[in-house]
Design a protein around this nucleic acid. Structure first.
Lengths: 135, 135
DNA sequence: CTAAAACCTGACGTTGACGTCAGAGGCAAG
DNA sequence: CTTGCCTCTGACGTCAACGTCAGGTTTTAG
């Protein structure tokens, strides 16, 4: 398929796909006239790239991880790299969960006009507690 | 305390604190000579701002939410706003969890050199499964 | 064959959250 | 007083992940 169709299928812009290629994240065959031609699997690849992007990985990091994903075997370094990113994401999830819980507390405290909003005082206790529990 | 100390305590740069003030996220008293002076509670405020930033909220959004956090009562709009952001964070957590699980699968498949790496084919199945299992 | 739609490269523009630098004041110590 | 560190405003620089525009070629529809 050509770049327009891949863009439509994967929901990203044509420009983004060309950018991915520029960054070495996505390769394409070229027709005689120079037009990019992608296999069906490219849609999955793009989805994967987007997933890693949305997890906060930079294009450089993704570029470093993708070969390790593609390869059947991995070096100890690449495994460490993957594990490190996994841990980073885990920490990110924990932090987000804390933030969400705090937002819930805010919503609860502001929901009924009678209740006071002592959240700024509360949130530190919660933050410190979960912080000291997950360093 | 002055800006340098607040920066040291809260772990952000002096520039960032001035930026927060610029964006209306953090107010400061001014001494006669114009130097910023913060109360102790400012450290908590900064921590809160950072938490919201790290959850992917823009400074504009934070600026809209903070008054609603400070106020004892909230309007229906502000509550809806808070709830919307909460849901966004929830979705973000779910997406991150999926990404993490995928990374785990990669690590597992590349961990032992004997096992094949059929992850790109697998990950969609897993993504669909966890997607339909956690909305 | 022709016009519209899709594609190409190259290059400059955008946005957010700061970094960094310049030049000028403020403040406690010796 | 002056030395040294802190602070001020203002303004330009940065970086990532694209958006957008220009000017030209290719493919497709009629």
């Amino acid at each position: 398929m050509r770049i327009g169709e891949l863009a439509a299928r994967s929901g990203v812009s044509v420009r983004a796909l060309r950018y991915y290629e520029e960054q070495g994240l996505l390769e394409a065959d070229r027709s005689e006239s120079g037009q990019r031609h992608y296999p069906e699997s490219a849609a999955d690849r793009v989805e994967l790239i987007q997933m890693l992007y949305s997890a906060g990985l930079s294009s450089r990091t993704v570029a470093e991880l993708l070969p390790c994903v593609d390869a059947k075997v991995s070096t100890p370094e690449s495994r460490a790299r993957l594990a490190a990113e996994r841990d980073r994401i885990d920490a990110q999830i924990a932090a987000l969960a804390r933030t969400r819980d705090n937002l819930d507390a805010v919503i609860a405290s502001t929901g009924s006009p009678a209740s006071g909003c002592a959240w700024i005082a509360d949130h530190d206790v919660a933050a410190q507690a979960s912080h000291s529990a997950t360093p």
